[in-house]
């Protein structure tokens, strides 16, 4: 099979006919609607621009949502934290609220790309790109976040567990809808979270494996845990078998080690020439599930024996 022309001949420029900058969410949704799905939302642009340059993405109209009002908040709402659709990774990583009440997310946001990327790339964009190892998506999945999606027809709320549909595919229609906010429960005093990442270099990296854990302690026991992994499936992956395994068990190294073993039965990383083999990443799932649980429990005030 001959290699595609676009893989051998690269462009410096984009080819987009229109660039629209709506002043309100309503206007933005109308713009999208009026183009019948042929327009595309651009926020920070760090995913969209390279895809346009490499001609992977073929759209003629961009709708820039980065100036919509009231999208850049990071706020506590009762027991919840609500993050606006325009919040960047840099803002989330630096937020005391997130650092304190969702540290896994702060850590993940602090590892995305580079400082330059984090300064523009939004958490909403990270979710909408639908990549299995995205550094904001995986912790948000462990935090049981839900997202609000707006379209010309109205709003809907979708839990992240139903949001990711396939590689690069989500429940959001990028030609018609806008992700306006992200909501999840702040960590309680007996809860902790952790985010671990394995890569070949320490910045601007391509993750081999990422793991986010939210754990609830009950004295020396694990009341419950949420474990999210990537890339071990086409989408950010909730490791339910290991979660069920640890629930109600004592927080011992043996439990956590067995949780790691359990996890390898359900997740299925593919062989990747650039990220690593299935066998290796399966081994790493064991280590990361154990380490992730250990760190999250420690944050919850529970030392693993």
């Amino acid at each position: 099979m001959a290699l595609a022309f676009e893989k051998l001949h690269w462009h410096s420029k984009l080819e987009v006919a229109e660039y629209l900058v709506p002043a309100s969410l309503t206007e933005a949704l109308d713009m999208l609607a009026s183009h019948g799905g042929k327009a595309r939302v651009i926020a920070g642009g760090t995913d969209v621009i390279p895809e346009l340059r490499s001609r992977k993405l073929d759209v003629s109209v961009l709708v820039d949502v980065s100036r919509l009002p009231d999208m850049d908040g990071i706020e506590a709402d009762g027991d919840d934290i609500v993050i606006g659709g325009g919040v960047t990774h840099a803002a989330a990583a630096a937020s005391p609220l997130i650092q304190d009440k969702a540290s896994a997310l702060a850590t993940g946001c602090g590892w995305v790309g580079s400082p330059q990327i984090r300064n523009v790339a939004t958490l909403a964009g990270n979710l909408v790109s639908g990549q299995p190892a995205a550094d904001a998506s995986v912790p948000l999945l462990a935090l049981d976040a839900e997202v609000t999606i707006a379209s010309a027809k109205g709003e809907r709320v979708v839990p992240l567990s139903e949001f990711f549909l396939g590689l690069g595919q989500t429940a959001l229609d990028p030609g018609r809808e806008i992700l306006t906010s992200i909501r999840f429960q702040a960590l309680a005093d007996n809860q902790g979270s952790a985010y671990l990442r394995l890569a070949k270099r320490k910045a601007l990296n391509l993750p081999i494996l990422v793991c986010a854990v939210k754990a609830t302690a009950d004295g020396g026991n694990i009341a419950s845990a949420a474990i999210a992994l990537g890339p071990v499936a086409p989408v950010p992956f909730r490791e339910r078998a290991a979660e069920e395994f640890v629930a109600g068990k004592p927080a011992t190294m043996e439990t956590l080690t067995q949780a790691g073993e359990t996890a390898t039965a359900t997740c299925n990383p593919r062989d990747s020439l650039l990220r690593g083999s299935c066998d290796y990443r399966t081994e790493m799932v064991k280590v990361f599930v154990r380490r992730g649980l250990t760190a999250a429990l420690a944050q919850a005030g529970c030392t693993v024996k």
Binding site: L3, K7, K200, R201, K202, A203, L204, N205, L206, L273, L274
Partner: peptide, 18 residues
């Protein structure tokens, strides 16, 4: 014979943190 990592996203060189 096909280069799988032609861009600097796939071809990794050391950063300031490495």
């Amino acid at each position: 014979g096909v280069t799988q990592n032609p861009s600097l996203q796939g071809y990794l060189v050391p950063t300031m943190l490495d």
